[in-house]
């Protein structure tokens, strides 16, 4: 099964990963990190195919991907 890990402290809530995921797995969550950003979360991890589109677009290198 594919999976991603998000370094939530690096997330700045730009949503680029959310709109780039072909399976719509990601969402901006309701928790904030220490900088005050609502960070992205993997809302439907079971749908992840490990394509790494989220990691490619992420400006902050906050996402790593396993497949």
């Amino acid at each position: 099964m594919a999976r991603i890990e998000i370094t939530t402290e690096a997330c700045k809530s730009c949503s680029y990963c959310v709109i780039s995921c072909p399976k719509k797995c990601l969402e901006i969550g309701s928790d904030v990190n220490s900088k005050g950003y609502l960070y992205a979360v993997s809302a439907r991890p079971e749908d992840c195919i490990g394509c790494a589109m989220c990691a490619q677009i992420c400006p902050e290198s906050a996402i790593e991907v396993w497949r």
Partner: peptide
């Protein structure tokens, strides 16, 4: 399971960029 996307060693480990949200400088 294989890691297919890792953070590059070209940026400092653990560092968060100083750029604004959505700024592509960090990309």
């Amino acid at each position: 399971e294989k890691k297919v996307y890792s953070r590059t060693k070209g940026i400092i480990e653990g560092a968060v960029s100083g750029f604004c949200p959505g700024c592509m400088h960090s990309t």
